[in-house]
């Protein structure tokens, strides 16, 4: 299916969903994932610091079509964000793996959005992904927090609300997960 057909289909499903058809969301997700993938691919093909904001605008457009057009109930919203976070994580990691196979041993250099110009932050997405997989077995909720924080950019308050936990809990879980990841990644580097 080409992108414009996809877009058409997305619109149709959104309408169905808006009319109260819950199943529509389930059908929607793979399409949205494809759309996100397409957008992300464009995004990453460029890999120019000056363009880092552009694809977010594109993804946002899609996001707004989903979230903005119809009232979304709490559960759906959480569902959506969790889905988005996981999807983005997968897209970025796939991309990083693709890069790694084409350029051996060269971890993706990911530029944080805000500071793209002056503070390139090197992030080994594959290592991060592997670590997250380990953490998943230890405490899945922490992985959700990391994902939501890192792959959708939600604020802690929003994450807390989505996961229906207190802000303090969210912060604690975040802090320990982050410390663990940091240690894990650095140990990997040393090892």
């Amino acid at each position: 299916m080409n992108p414009s057909q996809d877009a058409h289909e997305i619109t149709r499903l959104l309408d169905a969903w808006g009319d109260g058809n819950r199943w529509a969301l389930d059908e929607l997700m793979p399409l949205v994932a494809a759309e996100l993938r397409r957008l992300a691919k464009n995004y990453m093909l460029r890999e120019r610091p000056s363009h880092t904001l552009e694809p977010t605008a594109l993804v946002n457009e899609l996001y707004l079509r989903l979230v903005g057009r119809r009232d979304m109930n709490w559960k759906d919203r959480a569902h959506f964000f969790a889905f988005s976070a996981t999807t983005m994580r997968r897209i970025l990691v796939d991309h990083a793996r693709g890069k790694r196979t084409s350029k051996r041993g060269d971890g993706i250099q990911w530029l944080p959005l805000d500071e793209a110009m002056d503070q390139p932050q090197e992030m080994d997405l594959i290592a991060l992904d592997d670590a997250l997989k380990t953490l998943e077995a230890m405490r899945a909720r922490q992985v959700r927090i990391i994902e939501l924080r890192c792959f959708t950019g939600l604020k802690m308050q929003e994450i807390a609300e989505l996961l229906e936990i207190s802000l303090a809990t969210a912060n604690r879980e975040w802090a320990s997960a982050r410390a663990w990841l940091y240690r894990e990644l650095n140990m990997r580097e040393r090892g």
Binding site: A40, T56, V59, N60, Y63, L64, V67, G68, F81, S84, A85, M88, L92, W110, P112, L113, D114, E115, Q121, M123, L125, I146, R149, C150, F151, T152, G153, L154, K155, E158, A175, S176, R178, A179, W180, L181, Y182, R183, N186
Partner: peptide, 27 residues
């Protein structure tokens, strides 16, 4: 102990989203 140590150094680790969906107003 090592986790606490990592925590000390990790202040800026992951402090920026790697990918940001819908920044600002709608959220």
């Amino acid at each position: 102990r090592s986790l606490l140590e990592a925590d000390d150094s990790a202040a800026r680790f992951l402090d920026k989203p790697l990918f940001e969906l819908a920044p600002d107003e709608p959220r």
